[in-house]
Amino acid sequence: MLLQVNEIHSYYEKSHILHGVSMRIEQGEMVCLLGRNGVGKSTTLKSVIGIIEPKQGSILFKGKDLVGKAPYQIARTGIGYVPEDRRIFKSLTTHENLLMGIKGGKTAKGNLGQAWSIEKIYRAFPKLEERRGNKGAHLSGGEQQMLTVARTLMGNPELILIDEPTEGLAPLIAKDVLDMLSKVLESGVSILMVEQNYKAAIKVAGRFYIMSKGQIFFEGDGRALMEAEDIRKNYLEV
């Protein structure tokens, strides 16, 4: 097992957001965390990367507990984080943004056998090469999203946490981004994705969790999700 989240309780300032969340991710798997706005999906990702420190529970990555470590230490164990709203460095160029993805200190090589380099990124995503000298602020939403994923790949993560990658993108662009994630998955990187739109996610993800009010209410593959009509109605559809 690559990642195992055990009964974590996280707080945002004084409010109790996660009430005992547990989940697991296997090597080479893409898992999607679904749920409405404000149910704790982003908080779950932030708890894994260490931006929010859970007050209870444990998070095991390759068997080692991450709770209490700083984000940069967690990143160096081989986890990439792609936050909501993309958060590229606006005053840096595309190229410089990618350079930021190379980790200082020890970089986890993992057992993937292949390392990402800037040349490889440009070959795999030629759109980024076209924009290499442009400031991050001048990229379109879709380009920014591709750049954040590529920036994370530069650190050769074994697991990528990605928060609502298609939010605010036109359907065609959203499809490009999901295709990119499939490519990343094929290269051997595991993915934990947060989404609101299960119809788009079902095409790329293998397993699903549904969250509501800081707890997990459903776990299953795409088929189980389609069959669980009541659960979808209660926890996903508006």
């Binding site: 990367i49 260490g50 931006i51 700083a70 984000p71 940069y72 990143a75 160096r76 984080y81 936050p83 958060r87 460095f89 606006k90 005053s91 840096l92 410089e96 943004n97 350079l99 930021m100 993805g101 190379i102 980790k103 200082g104 200190g105 970089t107 920036r151 994370t152 650190g155």
Partner: peptide, 25 residues
Amino acid sequence: TKIGIIVRASVDDTEMVNALGVNVP
């Protein structure tokens, strides 16, 4: 330099620099 890029990135978004594996402190 890489150090310069890190400093400029930190002016933009420190939390993100941290999450990318840079020892921000």
